[in-house]
Simulated scan of single mutants.
Amino acid sequence: MTDRAALQHRLEQGIATLGLQLPAGAVPRLLDYLDLLVRWNAAYNLTAVRDPAEMVTRHLLDSLAILPYVTGSTLADLGTGPGLPGIVLAIAAPGRAITLVDSNGKKVRFLREAIRSLKLEGVQAVQSRVEDVQGQFDCITARAFATLADMLGWGGHLLAPGGCWLAMKGRRPDDELEALPPGFALASMHSLAVPGLEGERHLAVIRHAGAAAAPAAC
């Protein structure tokens, strides 16, 4: 089995275990993204994960695990790094407008190349601090780049009324939940089983306090 075929097998098995059905062509595009990330990572150190097989698990499948909770027509991925989970979600569920936000110039250059080479429609990369980003979004994703209090303090203004903030965490962040800023509340907490990944993974779904009942996907 070639390296690409082995990676595809690992990815397809993980997608099946997660119970997801992706659009036609999504798996090859995810692998194209992985190829691009591996090439750029050699020169620009975009991620500490070096092994492509580990990248399938720790980057692609970990990002895909939150797909059932993504909702709305607009999404901002804050502290996206090399596009995790934002680019993975753009490939797996195309059709929504996605803004990828990171303050690191080399990572944003990679994001723009990935958007161009993968022909990701409706996706843009913005080099900015989270607190300086403008606009509001139906869904916000953040992959554990700070505490919940800090994330919401910096970027809470970006969450549209009725929207969902999806905070990806390792261990269940009970201590952080006690320090949520005023105006925000935990809507639900989900334990995620990422195929092949050891250790705990949790998704905290946060909404505006007092918001109406969340959509089913939220």
Rank of each mutant, 00 (worst) to 15 (best):
A5E: 15
D175E: 15
H190N: 09
S73T: 15
E198K: 12
V194T: 07
D51H: 14
A213H: 11
A114C: 05
A204M: 03
R172G: 05
A217P: 11
L186T: 08
Y33D: 02
N104F: 00
L192E: 09
A5Y: 06
R39H: 13
D32W: 02
R96A: 02
H59V: 04
L22W: 00
F137R: 11
P94L: 04
A193C: 10
V101N: 07
H157I: 00
E198L: 11
H208P: 05
A92S: 13
L192A: 02
T80N: 04
C139N: 05
G196V: 03
G170D: 10
H190L: 01
T99W: 10
L186I: 04
L67W: 06
A193N: 13
A6L: 13
Y44Q: 12
L192Q: 08
L20V: 06
A48V: 06
G196Y: 11
S117N: 11
R96Y: 09
H9L: 15
L30H: 06
R10P: 10
K107H: 01
L22K: 04
A187E: 14
I206H: 03
H202R: 09
T71K: 13
H202G: 05
D32G: 10
E12K: 07
T74V: 12
F137A: 07
L36C: 06
V123Y: 00
V27I: 12
G19K: 11
E176C: 07
G156T: 02
I115C: 00
S117K: 14
L118D: 01
A217H: 14
M168N: 02
L100V: 04
G81T: 03
G162S: 00
T47R: 02
H208C: 02
L22Y: 01
A42T: 12
A213E: 13
T147C: 05
R116S: 12
L158T: 06
I206Q: 01
A179W: 08
V38D: 09
S63I: 00
R50C: 04
D138G: 13
V27Y: 00
M189G: 11
A26T: 06
L11W: 03
V56L: 10
L75H: 10
L67Q: 10
D35M: 06
V38P: 03
F184N: 08
A24V: 07
P181E: 11
P94S: 10
A211G: 07
D102W: 00
P82E: 05
S63Y: 01
C218S: 10
R109G: 07
G105M: 05
Q124T: 08
G25M: 03
Q136R: 15
C164H: 11
W154H: 12
E131F: 00
F145A: 13
R116H: 14
W154T: 02
A42Q: 14
P52Q: 11
L75Q: 14
V27K: 00
